[in-house]
Design a protein around this nucleic acid. Structure first.
Length: 463
DNA sequence: TACTTCGGCGCC
DNA sequence: AAAGGGCGCCGAAGTA
């Protein structure tokens, strides 16, 4: 795949982007070294205790019998042999190389007490090896300077390394606290994070201009994720809880946008019901509710067997057909036209002025321009926000960037100004610069208390 | 010892 | 017609 800037504007974006990110790297983020050292110690103790505890588990005893002195609880190969060979559990999924899968999804279907303890231990080890040690290793004079690349991602996104600033835990509250408490503002400041809300959905709409999607984006009373969650679980929109909406968004809508299909969405939506103990707003368990609607089982996941009516797979297949065939028909037409145009010419052009050519798969051809342009909005904003900070001689420092968000270290005195300037750049100036932005951009802001850690960030009103 | 590939898992 | 887009880092296991 080859990519090239075709306009002065596109070239400038990369040039200024690299310089702006170099400044971000130089700024760096302050690290609470006392906390970090203590966390390393305490977490390592926890790992030791749990490792000892797990030795009395039946599974580990079998493990030791089989592998003796070669026993290694970090070996997925060994775990597979213990569970699916020695203990005779049924192996439902294989890796690409044909070995038994031993990831969370596969293990959770086994329903044995060992799994819970084992996965928890693995989580603590991940926190220790990748995050705490990674931060410690790269911290210099109390500051961490992660690298931000613009020359790696195929899609024209950025990437980050040494350490990767863009994959720090946040969804798991325990992990999030353990890791994010390392990050603190300079004295008298706050960590402030400003995010574009739904920027990739907007970016896609700038290409396809589907009127139904545009009305979802522009009309605040409408809510696509709520509606799709309702349809997937056969609920009225009033019965959709926050958690159910979350599942609709992350197990159906986004995967569908990325090119996924019902045979993989259906089991994800189905297993979420038990894993998250989903209930309707009235408190009816979701499986019970679905049973009332005539759906009792997931149904076959065999792609060669056509889905049986009355199964969840069949239902989600119909939801998918409705989603692309009726609801977002214009979006579908755009995807087909875009793909056909690439097939004719071997290339396509992003809204930001980059030409991308070479051999690509269909999903790549459809996703790259969207993902790239969404990030370019963030990059343009970062460049121009930094210019503003310099112009007004502010002490605020941009310290990081996570695809659709900007992280800054903001002296409390500049807090209000910073929010205002951010909002101005991210939602108003950018629209004047790029006229193809035809949807109203919105920014969500979160901030830590003064001298509080990144973990303590809370949503705040912006503008 | 150094390097590669794989499986796994963290994020958008 | 095909069938999940993009990253970085870890340890295990195999190879040079």
């Amino acid at each position: 795949m080859i990519a090239q800037a075709t306009t002065i504007d596109a070239y400038k974006l990369m040039h200024e982007g690299v310089l702006a990110l170099a400044q971000v790297e130089a700024n760096g983020m302050k690290i609470d070294l006392n906390y970090l050292d203590n966390a390393l110690k305490e977490n390592s103790k926890k790992i030791a205790v749990l490792s000892e505890e797990i030795k009395s588990d039946k599974v580990v005893k079998v493990w030791k019998k089989r592998f003796g002195t070669k026993t290694n609880l970090d070996s997925g190969d060994q775990l597979g042999k213990v569970l699916f060979d020695s203990l005779g559990y049924e192996c439902k999924e294989k890796t690409d190389k044909g070995k038994p899968k031993t990831d969370i999804g596969s293990l959770e279907t086994l329903d044995i007490p060992f799994v819970k303890k084992y996965l928890y231990l693995k989580k603590l080890k991940k926190a220790q090896a990748t995050y705490l040690k990674g931060i410690k290793r790269e911290t210099c004079n109390g500051f961490l300077h992660p690298v931000f690349n613009l020359h790696i991602a195929q899609t024209f996104r950025s990437s980050s390394d040494s350490p990767n600033f863009q994959n720090l835990p946040i969804r798991d509250p325990m992990m999030a606290e353990l890791i994010r408490r390392c990050f603190i503002p300079r004295k008298g400041g706050r960590i402030v994070e400003t995010d574009y809300s739904g920027i990739e959905v907007h970016a896609a709409a700038w290409y396809h201009k589907d009127p139904v999607m545009l009305s979802y984006i522009c009309d605040p009373s409408k809510d696509m994720h709520r509606d799709m969650a309702a349809q997937c679980y056969k609920l009225s929109t009033k019965q959709v809880t926050k958690l159910i909406r979350y599942c609709g968004k992350n197990k159906f809508v986004f995967p569908q946008f990325y090119g996924d299909w019902y045979l993989s969405c259906a089991p994800a939506l189905w297993s979420s019901i038990d894993q998250l103990k989903l209930e309707t707003a009235k408190g009816t368990p979701l499986k019970e509710h679905l049973a009332k609607k005539g759906i009792y089982d997931l149904g076959s996941l065999n792609p060669k067997v056509s889905p049986v009516k009355g199964t969840f797979v069949h239902h989600i297949m119909e939801v998918q057909e409705d989603f692309w065939g009726r609801r977002f028909k214009i979006y579908t037409d755009w995807k087909n036209d875009w793909w056909e145009s690439y097939r004719r010419t071997g290339k396509f052009q992003t809204l930001t002025g980059f030409e991308i050519s070479g051999w690509m798969k269909r999903n790549e051809v459809i996703n790259y321009p969207v993902q790239g342009v969404a990030f370019h909005c963030l990059l343009w904003s970062l460049i121009n926000l930094q210019k503003q900070l310099k112009k007004y001689k502010m002490k605020t420092k941009i310290v990081g960037q996570i695809h659709d968000s900007i992280v800054s270290d903001v002296p409390d005195k500049e807090f209000k100004d910073y929010l205002e300037i951010s909002n101005e750049v991210m939602t108003k100036k950018i629209v004047k610069h790029w006229p193809w932005i035809i949807t109203p951009l919105e920014v969500e802001a979160e901030a830590s208390p003064v001298d509080g850690s990144w973990f303590e960030k809370k949503a705040i009103k912006v503008a």
